[in-house]
Write a protein that binds this DNA or RNA. Structure first.
Length: 259
DNA sequence: TACACTTTTCCTGGTT
DNA sequence: CAACCAGGAAAAGTGT
């Protein structure tokens, strides 16, 4: 498991860049340059270590997952099965093909990918300044293409956190489930289709969560208390079995296929 | 600074 | 008895 370095603490006090901002605009701001240099050193998600053309299928999914999380896209609008392709195939897709594959988010994802290919990962940090852009994209796409793949597809909320350090516990758990090589048998799916999973190594889970939060006093007792709070908010649902949890309706990004 | 929200910490009591 | 679950209460941490 990669430890998320709290690099934000040593970064200049600036707003994060718009992922769709041009490179010349970005480099025109020296703070952003410093920010990007620090970020590239501290931020490694696997897929970021490769050029998009070199991505495996898994990297493509990781990237989509990242976009869902970072830009608060509704994953139910993105049929991941249509992205069961490697990076070379992804990069060969036209904007129109993105719209067909990803519906309401296709145009947006296509532009993010193009910026990523041209300028690198530094564009992928925050949607804050692109909220309005995205809202316009979404509405435009909905009107023009009616390609939304889900009946509950919606414009993403505009209030959210952006810091990597503030990754929520449930997202951390989900990402661990989706990353077998980082999971080390800590968690395993019991019923993937219904979002049911089991904590296999409770102490190890507490340890990696503690590492993420830089808290060596974390225990499974405390972590499980945080998980139980999720029952109130629909993030998790109760499963009456020890160490078994189920993702609730207010989660996203864990399904194999979003149709 | 106030506030909202999430997570942590501690706790009592119950269950497996 | 250990490990886990349920959930109250309060505090801490973080972002707006």
């Amino acid at each position: 498991m990669l430890d998320s370095v709290n690099f934000n603490n040593c970064l200049p006090d600036i707003s994060l860049p718009d992922p769709l901002m041009s490179w010349t605009q970005l480099l025109g701001n020296q703070d952003y340059y410093v920010f990007a240099c620090l970020h590239i050193l501290a931020f490694d998600r696997g897929w970021t270590s490769f050029l998009p053309e070199q991505w495996s299928k898994r990297h493509v999914w990781q990237w989509l997952q990242f976009c869902c999380d970072q830009y608060k896209l509704d994953a139910s609008c993105i049929p991941f099965s249509r992205f069961d392709i490697n990076g070379m195939q992804l990069c060969s897709m036209s904007r129109q093909e993105f719209v067909i594959a990803a519906g309401v988010y296709g145009d947006y994802l296509h532009r993010i990918l193009q910026n990523l290919r041209i300028y690198g990962e530094w564009f992928l940090l925050s949607p804050d300044e692109s909220k309005q852009d995205f809202k316009q994209y979404s509405q435009h796409s909905c009107l023009l293409s009616s390609m939304c793949m889900s009946t509950d597809c919606h414009i993403p909320p505009v209030t959210h956190r952006t810091s990597l350090q503030s990754t929520h516990l449930w997202e951390f758990v989900r990402d661990l489930l989706l990353s077998p090589e980082e999971n080390s048998g800590i968690l395993e799916w019991e019923d993937r289709d219904n979002g049911i999973f089991r904590v296999v190594k409770s102490e190890a889970l507490a340890k990696v969560w503690g590492q993420r939060k830089k808290n060596d006093r974390m225990t499974y007792e405390k972590l499980s208390r945080a998980l139980r709070y999720y029952y109130k908010t629909g993030i998790l649902e109760r499963v009456d079995r020890r160490l078994v949890y189920k993702f609730g309706k207010n989660t996203h990004g864990w399904r194999k296929q979003q149709l």
